[in-house]
Design a protein around this nucleic acid. Structure first.
Lengths: 349, 349
DNA sequence: TGACAAAATTGGAACGTTCCAATTATCTTG
DNA sequence: CAAGATAATTGGAACGTTCCAATTTTGTCA
């Protein structure tokens, strides 16, 4: 049944008007008479017509395709799933539909999916770039006038907008809180040093220490993979230092969980014997034991904002690069422990 | 710069051949001479040509759009994020790209996004239907010959393929395990009774009890929203019974977590004083305290299988409804406790 | 080399829409 | 009611590709 599809011409025929009029009705033009509009709409419903955006798009400007692309580096990370939901909310209600692709940190895969999306005529792209993404990878996109908004990570040298969380301020607040609790040997654990996010967070750590008139010891900065296993490795190394840290800020929550694991392996109780602060506030942070003190970044809100920024650029027809930093806030839970002087009083006196 | 785009005609011109030949090269036809192919490909690279699938699609059959749709009811649930990743893996490597949309359980939203996807010419759809989805909602899809694969949930009466997990067997195994530990008053907690998933799991619960020659008490079946809050409410009601249960199988992991919360509110220790088993094996299940005993369903694998099934139907050009049930397995952790007779021995003797 | 087959290439129509310029219908108003 | 203004409608070209049938080129062999 219904093998060959219904076109605007079929509608025109059935409604006794021209295809041009039907087209006008389709785009809700004020030029068409109310009665005609009603009749045409009725026929459209009756015949089960479905609009062919491909055909429309062929005639119109590329930027009216009503498709945006979103590519993330790790959708299994709930941070990005939330981000995607935020994006989806605003693009859906703007009548857009989103291509979503996962790169799993592979730049090759990323190149492929971006190429594929271009072929399909996306009118904009939201990208959380895979590690190692080069500015040249984005060059053709911006050259052809497709707005791009980078989220979470930046790619240096690319003339595109970006929306990243305030890594510097977040880490600074975390360190300040620990100092306020009485810690002065605070480690910075985890993360790959060759990323912009790492540099920003590290700088926040350093600045906070300086502000509080504490020395910055490079030995206390231990990089590792930004994963649970990486966290275990990092705390192992930190505990080998002749003068041990009493607290740590971690590159992200996954590292923080690993650090807790590593501490327990050394018969140390995270939150009691050692203070730990993470970054991201993933869902598990609040249910873990001890509940993780961390920096919350509201991924869904970031997704919404990224989408709004992108739509703004699409509608403006031109995309002047704009860099937005999204504010973050410290969420205090159990893993950072109570003030250290209480414990010192107990154990030393 | 580069405002107007490069078309197949520009390529033809530059390479000194006709547009037909370029088209042949584009689709890797064996009809074209090697030397010509090489020359054309070189020009394509030089001019930075990007294939316009919209235009191609206009001429070709609808089912060659290389776009599939995937719509889920809750992407913030990591189960669905994993599922989407599984789908993405196989469609990506088949040269497809996926529209992903989140309905947040709204059938209106679902209707909108499916309509939108149709307009864009998807060649197939993977759908985890929102609650209350009617077979009529899918009718136009299948009428126009677009293959649909339902995942996780079925919609009765719809002539589409489905891939669901073995709810009956999963719940049966859970109950058997609890009976094996010595429980005989086992509650079934959470879930909306008007869903197929609920019926299947409940039936598994009932059949297991019958098989083990235990009575089925309807009072022990307490439905609720399939959420953490719902779980709290359900266990509250169950604890009011004159003859309390000593264990519970839960509709899903979220409910199970709520049940644990509720137990603690009553000074009962989940895993010690009361056995709890969930369903789904979400990521948090292994890190929670106590770690949740649950039924594992491998969402990523389901995503892969669903995508394979869909691609098969797209390529076959016809979609005879196929119902696949994906096997599940019990993962024993702490929340179901040790065998009850040990505890009884301690407390009673 | 002539005749035929096979290989390679080609122009034009078609896909379903939008847009423009042009036409026709309807309304105002003196 | 004529005539100008405005409202409503319309045919045809265009978008970038694929497909078909036809044509040209190249190869084979007696």
């Amino acid at each position: 049944m219904g093998k060959e599809r219904v076109t605007v011409i079929d509608i025109a025929h059935a409604a006794g008007v021209s295809k041009s009029t039907v087209s006008l009705v389709l785009q809700a033009s004020p030029l068409v008479n109310e009665a005609t509009r009603a009749k045409v709409n009725a026929v459209i419903r009756d015949l089960g017509y479905v609009y062919n955006r491909g055909a429309a798009n062929l005639r119109q400007s590329n930027s009216k395709s009503k498709i945006i692309g979103i590519v993330v580096n790790d959708l299994t990370n709930s941070f990005f799933a939330e981000l995607a939901v935020g994006v989806d909310m605003v693009v859906q209600s703007a009548g857009y539909v989103q291509f979503l692709a996962n790169t799993a940190e592979s730049v090759d895969r990323q190149r492929e999916v971006i190429a594929s999306m271009r072929e399909h005529g996306i009118s904009g792209l939201i990208l959380s770039p895979a590690r190692g993404t080069d500015a040249a990878d984005l060059k053709p996109l911006v050259a052809s006038g497709i707005p791009v908004v980078n989220v979470v990570r930046q790619v240096s040298g690319a003339k595109v907008s970006s929306l990243i969380s305030d890594n510097h301020a977040g880490m600074r607040d975390a360190v300040r809180h620990l100092v306020g609790l009485g810690h002065h040997r605070i480690a910075f654990l985890g993360g790959f040093p060759d990323t912009a996010v790492f540099s920003e967070r590290l700088q926040g750590y350093r600045d906070a220490l300086s502000d509080m008139d504490l020395a910055v010891h490079d030995e206390l900065v231990v990089s590792s993979a930004p994963s649970r296993a990486g966290g275990v490795a990092a705390i192992e190394r930190a505990l080998l230092l002749r003068e041990r840290p009493t607290a740590a800020v971690c590159f992200n929550d996954a590292v923080a969980f690993g650090v807790c694991d590593g501490l327990r392996a050394h018969r140390l109780d995270p939150g009691e014997d050692f203070a730990v602060i993470g970054f991201d506030d993933v869902i598990e942070a609040q249910t873990a034991v001890p509940a993780l003190t961390t920096i919350s970044v509201d991924p869904q809100g970031m997704g919404r904002r990224a989408a709004q920024l992108l739509l703004k650029q699409i509608n403006a027809g031109r995309a002047d690069a704009e860099a937005i930093v999204s504010s973050v806030r410290l969420v205090v839970r159990q893993s950072c422990g109570a003030a250290i002087d209480k414990r010192e009083r107990l154990s030393l006196l």
